[in-house]
Design a protein around this nucleic acid. Structure first.
Length: 802
RNA sequence: GGGCUCAUAAGCUAGCGGUAAACUGACUCGUUUACACCGAGUAUUCCGAGGUUCAACUCCUCGUGGGCCCACCA
């Protein structure tokens, strides 16, 4: 690409965006007004997990939220848009471990927490700056971090409330366990991953006869506690009630008839191990079998000569040993999907550990009802929520065997096992640091586990509301991408239901993903595009303009070329403004590019209504009014992409390509009245266009507003100015058709000139049908001027060159 | 296997029950008093098959092909 040369007077977005951002911050343009009586528009966005940099998906989604936020601010609502970061729990621990090359599990708890806090302090400001840079109009003074005292307090209070409601229980129970992170996890943190595996049919024996059982996990043989066959399965009728001998380990387990055994799969015989999957856990509980735990928390096994080996190592060795003793009937390679931990990709195990749960399985119906009360944009996204709730199989596990998180404010009595929770007055509390006595006289031991980050990040509406007064639940709107419907949205809906018996939000905006060549961007695929890079080359406005090009909920393929149109828009509106300004400044001085654009400049004289409005101007204003109407409607319906398209179409093709060309004649050589009318039209349209684009491209619109409009307008910033209303003009019902005719004649003349390979300025004699001349009689002078016609004659359409 | 969703020009996306668009790209031409990061113009298009209808790209059904979520570890 050729190096672009900047000319004097060109818009320098890098310089301007930095300066304008600073202006917004200093003037607190986006501050929530606690004293105002205006209608509140409250916004809940998921606090991004602190990592090095904002990614493009964030930029995409937060831009979309911001379009709506800015629109509501301009229609006169008091926008409450706090900003938070999510910075505790496993994701943060993993980041800190990586950055500092340490392992949380092998560090002292206090030291590790200190390291986390120190690291966060270092990286958070840079991280948040990305949000500011793309122009997210949050009130950054209303800031929370999910590990700060304020959040800890509210999170702990939430836990205590739910405990008192009887919703919280602690249970020693086989649950999802990540051997890599060495913590229990929640169902929502499961992901699928395809693995290749060996599917082996092993020789069990029953009364000396061989019984084939297929498995992919022979390392669980010593954990086998029973063998299931289907009671309807004729093949195995004889053996029900007998005992089967486990190969290699030579112990016997009962053979039980259980209808859950699928006759089609494998040999139709199933070994139940403690624990291969959730099914095993249920089967063992149902049949009251005694589990044999063969796995350690770090993912190693604990039996015999294999003791200490990791799962996969043990599996390999056992297969070798089975082979050596001829205990394998058949073996084939398969690929199958396995549940892995979404944070680290490690295969999940099921281990009995003591964890804290919030009981939710009895609430499925009610939670779906809650979801239904929310207006989902687009509405089909509700289905995803509903599906997830319907598919729930586990209560919500909220405890994690980690260090860096909000402490669980609970103690368990050593003597009577009673659970004591903290008093509200002592929150936030770290139970490890505080001693408690049980009413029975025993010592109560403080809980050393911490909350999962969702326990806290699911109450961001409550957390942010507590920063100010006057904010009520439900909030007006929540925005996030569709991947976290099942987690963040689900948990937040659950919490608001349990605490307030309300939905957390009235509206739900669900944004799509950014893809590259149709694929989801991800670090592991190595196909990430950094928003910071885009901003360097095309500015935040360019990035946002692109983010507004697909509708809500739709994935959008990133293409570098597409950013270009945003950049072009910025240039175009800058240049159009230059023209307008230069043509209509009072002294009519020629335009000189501003070195420092925010400085006093010649302004318009067009904000005053002229004595007589030219017919052409009236027609164009009527057309503008239609755009104002539809853009307002589109923004109200969260259809920012449609609003953008409508506004752009008017700006580019109606205003620039046609009106500006038409009006040049009057600007350069018209009468005083003609100029005044044009001036009014130019001022009103340009301001309306700027305002309609302000939610999408906040920087350039602010820059132009400050330079050219500020001295005639009362508001400090375009972003707190009022949304455009229809221009008060008298409208007639065939205005549209007259304008259409004018533009189509103009188009036909241009085509004729183009075909004749003539300049657009070539002088002509235009012939036009009588009815058309009649219809255009009030705009004939403007038509004549714009097509450079010496005269317009009556006759069938023709263009004669002179 | 279940659910949701998408399928429109070379690419990326709008759109609508009345007969197709914007942007990028290609091609032709033009441009010096806003803009060569421009203007005018040309070419190319609604996945397939049925159905509803006076009329379907738009609604319905089926198929095909993507995407996402869930289930699937014997």
């Amino acid at each position: 690409m050729a190096e672009e040369t900047k000319k004097e007077g060109d818009y320098d977005f890098a310089e301007a965006e930095a300066r304008i951002l600073d202006f917004w911050e200093k003037k607190k343009i986006y501050a929530f007004d606690q004293k105002s009586k205006k209608k509140i528009f409250s916004i809940d966005t998921p606090p991004p997990t602190v990592s090095g940099k904002m990614h493009l998906g964030h930029a995409f989604m937060y831009s979309q939220m911001d379009f709506i936020a800015r629109f509501h601010r301009m229609i006169g609502e008091n926008v409450f848009y706090p900003f938070g970061t999510d910075d505790n729990g496993l994701p943060t621990e993993r980041l800190v471990e990586k950055m500092n090359n340490v392992k949380s599990k092998s560090m002292d708890r206090g030291d590790f927490i200190e390291l986390c806090l120190k690291t966060l302090k270092k990286i958070t400001p840079r991280f948040v700056q990305d949000w500011k840079d793309i122009g997210v109009s949050a009130d950054y003074d209303l800031y929370y971090s999910t590990i700060d005292k304020h959040c800890q307090k509210i999170s702990q209070k939430s836990f205590i409330d739910l405990f008192k409601q009887g919703r919280v229980y602690k249970k020693d129970f086989p649950s999802l366990w990540c051997p890599e992170c060495q913590t229990s996890i929640a169902q929502a943190e499961l992901e699928d991953k395809e693995f290749g595996s060996l599917f082996s049919t092993l020789k069990f024996s029953v009364a000396g006869k061989t019984l084939g059982i297929a498995t992919t996990r022979p390392e669980l043989l010593p954990a086998c506690v029973a063998v299931f066959v289907n009671p309807k399965d004729k093949r195995y009728k004889e053996i029900i009630g007998k005992r089967a001998k486990v190969p290699l380990f030579d112990f016997e387990v009962p053979i039980i008839a259980d209808s859950s055994a699928n006759m089609e799969k494998g040999t139709g015989v199933l070994m139940v191990c403690s624990y291969g999957d959730k099914y095993d856990a249920e089967a063992i509980a149902r049949c009251k079998l005694e589990p044999k735990i063969v796995m350690n928390k770090d993912g190693s096994v604990n039996y015999g000569e294999y003791g200490g080996m990791k799962i996969k190592e043990a599996r390999k060795k056992i297969i070798e040993d089975l082979k050596a003793q001829d205990l394998i009937i058949e073996q084939k390679s398969i690929t199958h999907a396995v549940n892995v931990h979404d944070k680290c990709g490690t295969e999940i195990e099921i281990l009995p550990t003591e964890q804290w749960f919030i009981k939710i399985l009895d609430l499925k119906k009610k939670l779906i009802e809650q979801g239904k009360k929310i207006n989902w944009h687009p509405d089909f996204m509700f289905k995803r929520y509903e599906n997830w709730v319907n598919g729930l199989e586990w209560d919500w596990n909220i405890s994690r065997d980690r260090h860096f998180g909000v402490p669980i404010p609970a103690w368990t009595c050593e003597k009577c096992r009673k659970v004591i929770v903290a008093n509200e007055s002592e929150l936030p509390v770290d139970p490890i640091m505080t001693k408690k006595k049980c009413s029975c006289g025993g010592d109560a031991i403080g809980e050393s586990k911490v909350f999962d980050t969702w326990q806290t990040s699911s109450i961001t509406p409550q957390i942010a509301a507590a920063l100010v007064s006057g904010i009520k639940i439900p909030y007006s709107v929540r925005c996030n991408a569709h991947d976290i419907i099942r987690t963040w949205d689900f948990y937040t809906i659950t919490k608001s239901f349990l605490h307030e018996n309300k939905t957390p939000w009235e509206n739900m905006m669900v944004s799509g993903f950014v893809t590259l060549g149709g694929e989801k961007m991800s670090k592991s695929k190595g196909n990430v595009v950094e928003p910071q890079k885009i901003m360097e080359t095309s500015g935040a406005d360019g990035l946002r303009f692109w983010a507004a090009s697909s509708k809500l909920g739709e994935d959008l393929d990133y293409q570098e070329k597409e950013i270009v149109s945003g950049k072009k828009f910025v240039t175009k509106i800058w240049n159009a403004t230059k023209f307008v300004s230069q043509s209509l400044s009072q002294e009519n001085v020629s335009f000189q590019g501003p070195k420092n654009p925010i400085k006093k400049r010649e302004g318009f004289c067009g904000n005053k209504k002229p004595k007589k409005l030219e017919e052409t101007d009236r027609l164009f204003l009527a057309s503008l009014n239609k755009v104002i109407d539809s853009a307002t409607g589109s923004f109200s319906d969260y259809e920012y992409s449609r609003a953008k398209q409508e506004t752009m179409n008017f700006f580019w093709h109606v205003f620039c390509d046609n009106y500006l060309e038409i009006v040049k004649r009057r600007v350069y050589s018209g009468t005083k009245e003609e100029k005044e009318s044009a001036s009014y039209m130019l001022y009103q349209s340009l301001l309306a266009i700027l305002k309609m684009m302000a939610p999408i491209t906040p920087y350039i619109t602010e820059e132009i507003y400050q330079n050219y409009f500020k001295k005639f307008e009362k508001d400090n910033s375009i972003h707190i100015s009022s949304w455009p209303e229809k221009i008060k003009i008298s409208e007639k019902k065939d205005d549209g058709s007259v304008l259409d005719l004018l533009l189509s004649v103009l188009g036909e003349v241009r085509m004729a000139k183009s075909k004749a390979q003539k300049s657009m300025k070539a002088e002509i004699v235009l012939s036009l049908e009588k009815e058309k001349i009649e219809k255009l009689k009030l705009v004939l002078e403007d038509l004549k001027g714009v097509v450079s016609a010496r005269e317009i004659k009556t006759g069938s359409f023709s263009v004669e060159f002179l």
